[in-house]
């Protein structure tokens, strides 16, 4: 297993938010409670190869719209469709996973990324099969909580 997986994810999220959004984001203390109940958009990107798994990036819906405005430099009125928000969240997730994948690739753990997909909903949770390794990291960007969930198949290569 990757010992510093959580640190790699934190670095990836920080890099994507600061570079693409000029937005501060800080990791919350371990085991911070996950706020649930709000309308949420989840972007997901999988990776297959020496390491196999999937990463979810959960964003409150209103925050996702504001990030889309910021990412594209457009006014709130211009975010005319859910599709544009979905695409932006998908791309942010893609960048986080790409950053993570690159670090893993440099350690000889090569894998291929999947195309991003989006899930919208309220009060939903992912229930992995018992053999899957699960890591849940929470972040805070201003008043919003951002959650990253990593599901990985146990490493059998070493």
């Amino acid at each position: 297993m990757i010992d510093d997986l959580e640190e790699l994810v934190k670095a990836a999220v920080g890099e994507v938010f600061s570079t693409m959004l000029a937005q501060q984001i800080e990791p919350e203390p371990p085991n911070s409670p996950v706020v649930n109940g709000d309308a949420t958009i989840a972007g997901s990107v999988g990776f297959i190869g020496n390491l196999t798994g999937i990463v979810y990036l959960y964003l409150p819906q209103g925050f996702a719209v504001r990030l889309t405005e910021k990412l594209l430099g457009i006014s709130p009125q211009s975010v005319e469709s859910e599709e544009l928000v979905n695409d932006s969240v998908g791309e942010l997730t893609n960048m986080v996973v790409g950053h993570l994948k690159s670090r893993l690739s440099d350690r000889g753990r090569s894998c291929v990324m999947t195309i991003p997909s989006i899930v919208r909903g309220t009060n939903f949770c992912i229930e992995p099969v018992s053999s899957t390794i699960r890591r849940l990291l929470t972040f805070r960007s201003h008043e919003h909580q951002v959650v990253v969930e990593i599901l990985m198949r146990p490493d059998t290569s070493s």
Partner: peptide, 22 residues
């Protein structure tokens, strides 16, 4: 978004002028 050494080498061999990482 994929910046690993292996990937960069693969891209470079195809004769790209430059590459940028997301």
């Amino acid at each position: 978004a994929e910046a690993g050494r292996e990937n960069v080498m693969k891209i470079a061999k195809q004769g790209v002028r430059d590459y940028l990482i997301k």
